[in-house]
């Protein structure tokens, strides 16, 4: 973690975070399942950090805790050196399933966060319009979510979060439900948006390519129990474009991450015999 020595500002500091769930075993008795243990992570202000790991490694669990939607059973999480608050105006989440309110028009969906902050009607509409333009959907402001395609809905979801300008953006496999082409378009789109104001982003995915293309750093997670196994700095130049996928550097990083993932998969198989 040499980046810490660079004297950058740490936005989120997670130390020894633990989370366990009660699950029913074969005998129908409750049994603890440790999802996160000794989870340490620092997220720098303004960085794009991706949690990468096999499914079930607890990456979404950490995101949910950071979002205030779940509680850790142990450890400390500091945001701007202050303990994490359950309710906060500082976080924005983009979910895989868009989570748009179906009874609201697109523009009204963008206003939700601003409404919660008690911002006046005129300003709300103005800010919402500006952010809808940012994702190129200004023409759709009076449509309902069900009239839009998956990719468009996710653009709206991103614009909705940007509209109330949270300090941290949490993205939980936001493009996983999209088709391959749309997914690649959205990745480039997200980069373009992020380049504009370099908001702190915690991104969760199990796609290696997506992680490399987007991130400043990739935190590779190991499971059972979930913790950070290795942090890889992605030294590819920015702004990045589609072509960077074909570069030698890109494929080198991909290769090393693949090796990690393979190792992890083998490890999981041997664990599998015990559960």
């Amino acid at each position: 973690m040499n980046i810490l020595e660079k004297n950058d500002k740490v936005k989120v500091r997670a130390r020894s975070v633990k989370r366990e769930f009660q699950i029913k075993n074969r005998q129908g008795k409750n049994q603890p399942l440790v999802v996160l243990e000794d989870f340490d992570l620092d997220i720098q202000e303004g960085e794009f950090l991706t949690l990468l790991g096999p499914s079930g490694c607890g990456k979404s669990t950490f995101l949910n805790i950071l979002a205030g939607l779940d509680k850790a059973d142990g450890g400390d999480i500091l945001v701007d050196e202050k303990p994490l608050e359950e309710r906060s105006y500082d976080r924005g989440i983009v979910f895989q399933s868009y989570a748009l309110l179906p009874w609201r028009t697109i523009i009204k969906n963008l206003e939700v966060g601003l409404e919660i902050r008690g911002i006046s009607k005129e300003t709300r509409r103005e800010v919402a319009r500006k952010n809808l333009e940012r994702v190129g959907l200004a023409a759709y402001e009076n449509q309902y979510p069900h009239q839009l395609s998956g990719g468009m809905k996710q653009r709206v979801a991103i614009a909705r979060v940007l509209a109330y300008d949270p300090a941290i953006l949490l993205m939980d496999e936001p493009f996983a439900a999209l088709d391959a082409q749309t997914r690649e378009d959205m990745q480039i789109e997200l980069l373009r948006i992020w380049e504009a104001d370099k908001k702190t982003i915690l991104f969760v995915t199990h796609s290696i390519d997506e992680a490399i293309l987007l991130s400043d750093r990739v935190a590779f997670m190991s499971s059972q129990p979930g913790h950070i196994r290795e942090i890889i700095e992605i030294d590819l130049p920015r702004p990045r474009t589609e072509e960077i996928r074909n570069s030698v550097e890109f494929s080198q990083i991909r290769k090393s991450l693949w090796a990690l993932l393979q190792e992890e998969a083998l490890l999981n198989q041997s664990y599998g015999a015990f559960i």
Binding site: Y89, R91, G92, F95, L101, G113
Partner: peptide, 12 residues
Amino acid sequence: VLIRSVKSMGGS
């Protein structure tokens, strides 16, 4: 997920 989403925006 709708409730979670609005909660994450700071909704009371």
